[in-house]
């Protein structure tokens, strides 16, 4: 996978990215990130704290939306990235897990930096709000 980067244009709709998240992915993310909060792997603990089930780490969801951004704009292009976590992603203990869809629109391009507004959903419901990234365009800026 080479780092092919596109020049983004205002109003452009970026190709939606779909990511499937299973319990195994949550365990792998826990290890890679060092976040071993049991609500992300134990049904027993998740139920005890009143959750509908084991939920994905918010930072994992954010990382997946960030993966979409680097897929669109290139690795190393991101200068700013922010989200608000609005709804937990319940990940059932089965083969299907949960499906997260990330789509993006180029809101502005200014001085070689593009702003991408992100829409991130699970089962058709928004799970992040105010999700925005700014990316440096190739050949401009540094």
């Amino acid at each position: 996978m080479t780092t092919s980067v596109l020049r983004l244009t205002v109003g452009e709709q970026l190709a939606a990215q779909t990511y499937r998240v299973t319990r195994a992915d949550l365990v792998r993310y826990a290890g890679a990130s060092g976040d071993f909060n049991p609500i992300h792997w134990s049904d027993r603990i998740a139920a005890a704290v009143g959750l509908p089930g084991v939920i994905a780490h918010g930072m994992f969801t954010m990382a997946l939306a960030g993966r979409a951004v680097t897929t669109w704009a290139g690795a190393g292009s991101v200068t700013e990235y922010g989200v608000r976590f609005t709804k937990p992603v319940v990940v059932p203990d089965d083969e299907e897990g949960a499906e997260i869809v990330v789509s993006g629109t180029v809101r502005a391009v200014d001085d070689g930096v593009a702003q991408i507004d992100l829409t991130v959903t699970c089962n058709g419901e928004k799970i992040l709000a105010q999700a925005k990234a700014r990316v440096r365009q190739p050949g401009l800026g540094e």
Binding site: T3, Y29, A32, R67, T70, A75, G76
Partner: peptide, 18 residues
């Protein structure tokens, strides 16, 4: 872990080329 497979995340030469 997040499935990000761009070469710059794993291959030093690819990152250095950037």
């Amino acid at each position: 872990a997040i499935g990000a497979d761009d070469a710059a995340f794993r291959d030093p030469d690819a990152a250095m080329a950037l």
